[in-house]
């Protein structure tokens, strides 16, 4: 059995398939114990974790807070607006100060691609990437993959379609790395301006026809249209996007009967997904959120506890 040797979780790209499975299996153990009893985990008891969130976030930040507390850690969240970064302090100085204040690990969300790697060269403590620009979002991909594995079983040769703003999406990149490493067939779909053909070089199938993208898929993952990352206009309007690429009642006719729908949130109801569909039985969106806690507990346990024999 593979052992976990990493101090930090920076990308899915760097993980081996066995390492991904180990995180998912650890999350499975956590979830199955949690489902049966009201357990008290303590593998991070006495640890001080800093949630350094330089970009807005609800789900990810809170999920890390809940996960850390569930493992017995103290967690302090610092947001961009409330930090000295607004006074001109550099990320390097902020992180070194956070370390000097006794942090045992830093969870970072930042708009700059590569910022977790940058931090890992500056400080000694484990760094967990909670999303860096358009680069990666490992914990989101792991919870997505966890949810897919839970619903579809072994992901080998399963067809997963990711539809939407792929160009600016760290979720798409991390999922593409993770899913292909586990043998799934990934299709990326959306307008030509948001789905570059070069993604084929990472093993994806690329299409710009929504029907083609949906018809054989075992699962469809929708991505939010990210207004904040689009420096130029990549499509005419939100309503046109909704008409051509949004998932609506007509799309259901193209999809397999048992195909499930995922979304990393936050949803733009009526844009990438029809509101009723988001709340339908096909949707596993809220299960993703719940699974996010177990998966993040697994990540923190593996990276931070440093004593893997220690019980959870």
């Amino acid at each position: 059995m593979i052992s976990w040797t990493r101090k930090s979780l920076l990308t899915i790209e760097e993980l081996k398939p066995d390492e991904i499975s180990l995180i998912l299996d650890t999350a499975d153990s956590i979830k199955s114990i949690s489902d049966k009893t009201d357990p008290i985990f303590s593998s991070l008891k006495g640890k001080r974790i800093i949630n350094l969130f330089m970009e807005p976030s609800t789900r990810t930040r809170v999920a890390f807070e809940v996960a850390a507390k569930s493992l017995g850690a103290d967690i302090i969240s610092i947001t961009g607006e409330a930090s000295s970064l607004t006074k001109g302090e550099t990320l390097k100085d902020t992180a070194m100060n956070v370390q000097a204040l006794g942090a045992d690990a830093i969870i970072i969300r930042h708009s700059s691609p590569g910022s977790p790697l940058f931090l890992s060269k500056m400080v000694e403590v484990p760094i967990i990437n909670a999303g860096d620009g358009a680069h990666e979002h490992p914990s989101q991909a792991l919870l997505d993959i966890y949810t897919l594995r839970e619903k579809l079983g072994d992901l080998k040769n399963k067809k997963i379609t990711i539809l939407g703003d792929i160009l600016f999406s760290r979720v798409a990149r991390s999922n593409l790395w993770g899913l292909t490493k586990l043998g799934a067939k990934v299709t990326l779909a959306g307008p030509t301006t948001l789905v570059p053909a070069d993604f084929k070089l990472l093993g994806a199938t690329v299409t710009h026809d929504t029907q083609t993208a949906l018809k054989d898929a075992d699962a469809v993952m929708l991505l939010r249209i990210q207004h904040e990352r689009q420096s130029a206009s990549h499509f005419p309007s939100l309503s046109e996007y909704a008409n051509v690429f949004g998932l609506g009642p007509l799309s259901l006719e193209w999809m397999k009967e048992k195909a499930i729908i995922l979304h990393p949130g936050p949803l733009n109801r009526g844009v990438e997904i029809d509101s009723a569909l988001a709340d339908s039985s096909r949707s596993v969106i809220l299960e993703q959120v719940s699974n996010g806690i177990a998966v993040r507990m697994a990540i923190m346990h593996l990276c931070i506890s440093k004593c893997l024999d220690k019980p959870l």
Partner: peptide, 8 residues
């Protein structure tokens, strides 16, 4: 492909 992969 590299800039795409790196999110740049």
């Amino acid at each position: 492909f590299l800039s795409l992969k790196m999110g740049l």
